[in-house]
């Protein structure tokens, strides 16, 4: 975040490895924190969806990571970072329907291959960076007060 003085709130959520049962709970926390800060309803909803998808991907594909929530006057940001296998082909991962989710995950209702496409559509900007056998970093930006 460039203009430091505009930062209103910063919160770090740590996601331990293989915590599938709890996965998805950060999105509820994010929703509550944004609501408490009086952030626009539309952004709360979109950030909740993006957070859920990012969180599930960290839980399903990585060895753990964290999510940072930033709130500023002009924007909300979610930063996802994990230690893990990384994404070999980011362009492919962005394609609706592409999924390498294992069978057990499909049985739980995952693996539509819609997570990253959802994150892209619901944010105003989504940057994905990944290193093979290193991990993945995703930054989602939501612009405030601009419709």
């Amino acid at each position: 975040m460039s203009a430091r003085d505009s930062l209103l709130h910063r919160r770090v959520f740590v996601l331990p490895a293989g915590n599938l049962e709890e996965a998805g709970s950060v999105s509820g926390d994010v929703r509550r924190e944004l609501t408490a800060m009086g952030v626009e309803q539309d952004i709360i909803r979109r950030a909740g969806v993006v957070c859920f998808e990012g969180e599930m991907n960290i839980a399903m594909y990585s060895q753990g990571g964290r999510i940072i929530l930033l709130v500023a006057d002009d924007r909300v940001e979610l930063l996802f970072s994990d230690r893990g296998p990384g994404i070999p082909d980011i362009e492919l991962a962005r394609t609706p329907g592409y999924s390498t989710a294992p069978d057990w995950a499909r049985e739980m209702g995952f693996g539509a291959g819609m997570g990253i496409p959802n994150m892209e559509r619901q944010s105003d900007r989504l940057e994905i960076r990944s290193r093979l056998d290193g991990g993945t970093v995703i930054r989602a930006v939501f612009k405030r007060g601009a419709e």
Binding site: G24, S27, G48, V49, F52, G109
Partner: peptide, 11 residues
């Protein structure tokens, strides 16, 4: 999936 309830909350 327990996540169905989290999705319900988010939406």
């Amino acid at each position: 999936a327990p996540q169905v309830l989290r999705v319900a909350e988010v939406l």
